[in-house]
Design a protein around this nucleic acid. Structure first.
Length: 587
RNA sequence: GGUCGCGUAGCUCAGGGGAUAGAGCAACUGCCUUCUAAGCAGUUGGUCGCACGUUCGAAUCGUGCCGCGAUCACCA
């Protein structure tokens, strides 16, 4: 079954030549949900049609309205206000939505989503959480729209910044390990990264006092030189350095796994930059041959993107070593050989907008078949009232700490309501996690991805109103109703029943499920989906408040309302699962 | 300075050519002897940053300006 919007569009298109002797394109036909305060369910805006109909708005609307009523048995009547043709559908049409579902067709496109992509020198903070939650949700939305989706994580596990924490550990740790200290692996490594920078800064100050310029001091601070030396050794596969690197990275991975598990995110494949950082040099060679790149006197390789409104960009250093984009060129090829994706999505912060413009252009110029499918899913930073979070300066909201706080908030507010006395300790703990993590994810997803989020650590994330808690609570309400009739056999209902406004609104929300799911996918916007979920829950709460479900005489209506309850509950659960939010059975 | 993004209620955000600009929070008022009140209903709250333009119609599109942010590394 296709959506009523599509059907109406096609019908208007069919009717147009008959009524006005002109043909019309589907895109010219705008249909909206009728706004509140007006009678009707769906509205056709006739203004854009006037040029072709060559008639007054009211007359045009009248003719189309009459034609539709005659040709579409689902339409009951219409009214015209100015240039708006408001169509009212028969109750039976909406009631059918409880049984019939709109098919979401299977897509042949393969989607590859890269997200998370952490550095192994610092623990996961709230900004990374946004990345993870967005990446997971976006993947879920594609999956729900029946695309083939693969999720990958490209781990930045090598480079000068990794050597910094390695060096600091070597110098200052006295052999401290996660086991000996009881500190989570990624936190421990992060601690030494911060330590390095403190020491580095101190050295810079000393050097400046000794009369060096700031630039010189930054460049020649002994500890930095030592880190660079360590990186050289790593690249030469020095046994000791590699062993240290492996040991510390394994600590980090163990720590990350715990956090990923709590966040509920997962990946089909992990890429490690230590394996991919040499890739891309062949592609650079290839680009040199066919004139995409050019060489400068010092042997460095460049691409001139000034014709595309960008700059000249280095793609390989004079000494033949890679820069960031070199690896990304190679990794892009690697991804394609692994997955043959039609669309390659990079969930990466908007600070890298420029970089991804460059990457896409390069791949296009290199003639890669997948280049047009490269898409940078650019999202805004999570900022604090004090400004940007900076790992190096330790001004970050740590992911694990935040999750603990969320559980604590959920616990306090849940216990204050006093509804869970009969729960076991385990059930309670589980509930607090579902509520706390749900609230956090919802908070991050409800904002348009491309906009930045302000997070004030002093204010706890809300559990009232436009929140996951609200939606979860709505779900438990449906469960609570259905639990009461577990042992009953529920009969059917007649589609001729009278519908209240509230019931109809809920039915329309239910009907919109797959429409909204598709829109959220096409616009790549999980926030749209979150908004729909909230509206669905809101509509059920109003229904729950206005309409008795079980306590009514009329068995027909009772069965219908039970079915509404079942359907809403199922959809809420599904809808939240798509974006990685769980529901409790009671709360 | 160049490029990109953002600016809507006291706060956090929807709406991105179509009707009288919507939610949540905060404040205030009602609704639990009836299916879970983490709920429902209502009141208060707006120069949609400013100006000009395009259009039957602009918060939405264009241009200019103002404010905030990011980016313009042989860092990643």
């Amino acid at each position: 079954m296709q959506t009523i919007y599509k059907t109406l569009q096609q019908q208007v298109q069919t009717a147009f030549p008959i009524l006005f002797n002109e043909s019309i394109g589907l895109h010219q036909i705008t249909l909206n949900e009728t706004v509140k305060d007006f009678e009707g369910d769906i509205t056709l805006v006739v203004f854009p049609l006037l040029k072709l109909s060559k008639k007054k708005p009211e007359e045009t609307a009248e003719l189309i309205g009459n034609w539709l009523v005659e040709n579409n048995p689902s339409i009951e009547k219409f009214n015209i206000i100015k240039g708006f043709l408001n169509l009212s559908f028969k109750n039976s049409f909406w009631i059918k939505t409880l049984i019939k579902t709109i098919d979401i067709p299977k897509k042949s496109d393969k989607i590859l989503v890269e997200y998370s992509s952490p550095n192994t020198n610092k623990p996961i903070h709230l900004g990374h959480v946004r990345n993870n939650v967005l990446g997971y949700a976006l993947s879920g939305i594609y999956k729900a729209n029946h695309y083939t989706v693969n999720k990958v994580n490209l781990i930045n596990d090598r480079g000068i910044h990794i050597c910094k924490s390695m060096l600091a550990w070597q110098k200052f740790s006295n052999g401290e390990t996660p086991e000996s200290s009881g500190i989570k692996g990624d936190k421990l490594v992060g601690k030494y990264y911060v330590l390095f920078n403190e020491y580095y800064k101190a050295e810079i100050s000393t050097l400046i006092e000794q009369g060096k310029s700031e630039e010189e001091a930054e460049k020649y601070a002994p500890i930095l030189l030592e880190a660079q030396e360590m990186l050289r050794k790593w690249e030469q596969n020095d046994a000791e350095v590699v062993a240290l690197w492996k040991m510390m990275n394994n600590w980090v991975y163990a720590g990350f796994e715990l956090t990923y598990k709590r966040l509920g995110v997962d990946f089909d494949k992990y890429y490690y930059e230590s394996n991919t950082y040499l890739l891309g040099k062949d592609a650079v060679e290839e680009g040199l041959k066919n004139g995409v790149f050019y060489k400068r006197e010092d042997n460095s390789v460049w691409i001139d993107l000034t014709a595309d409104g960008l700059d000249e960009k280095l793609v390989l250093r004079g000494d033949g070593t890679s820069v960031y984009i070199t690896q990304d060129i190679g990794t892009a090829d690697l991804k394609y050989s692994d997955f043959q994706m039609n669309k390659s999505i990079y969930v990466v912060g908007n600070e890298q907008d420029y970089h991804f413009k460059v990457l896409k252009l390069i791949m296009q110029k290199l003639g890669r078949v997948y280049a047009d499918g490269i898409h940078h899913f650019s999202y805004g930073m999570v900022d604090l009232p004090s400004g940007k979070m900076k790992s190096r300066e330790g001004t970050v909201v740590d992911a694990d700490d935040l999750m603990d706080e969320m559980i604590q908030t959920a616990k306090e507010q849940t216990e204050a309501l006093g509804k869970i006395e009969t729960f076991s300790e385990e059930e309670k703990q589980q509930l607090f996690e579902i509520i706390g993590f749900g609230a956090l994810k919802f908070f991050l997803l409800r904002v348009d991805p491309k906009k930045r989020i302000l997070f004030d650590p002093k204010e706890s994330i809300d559990l009232q109103g436009y929140t996951a808690t609200f939606v979860q609570y709505t779900y438990t309400r449906t469960r609570s109703v259905l639990r009461k009739i577990e042992n009953e056999n529920i009969g059917t209902w007649q589609s001729s029943i009278n519908l209240s406004e509230t019931e109809k609104e809920l039915l329309i929300k239910i009907y919109n499920y797959s429409i909204q799911l598709e829109i959220s996918c096409n616009e790549m916007n999980p926030a749209k989906w979150i908004d729909y979920i909230y509206e669905l829950a809101k509509a059920y709460n109003k229904f729950y408040n206005d309409c008795p479900i079980l306590n009514i005489e009329d068995g027909n209506v009772r069965n219908f309302r039970i079915a509404l309850t079942q359907k809403t509950g199922t959809l809420i659960k599904q809808a939240l699962e798509i974006v990685g939010i769980q529901v409790p059975e009671r709360m």
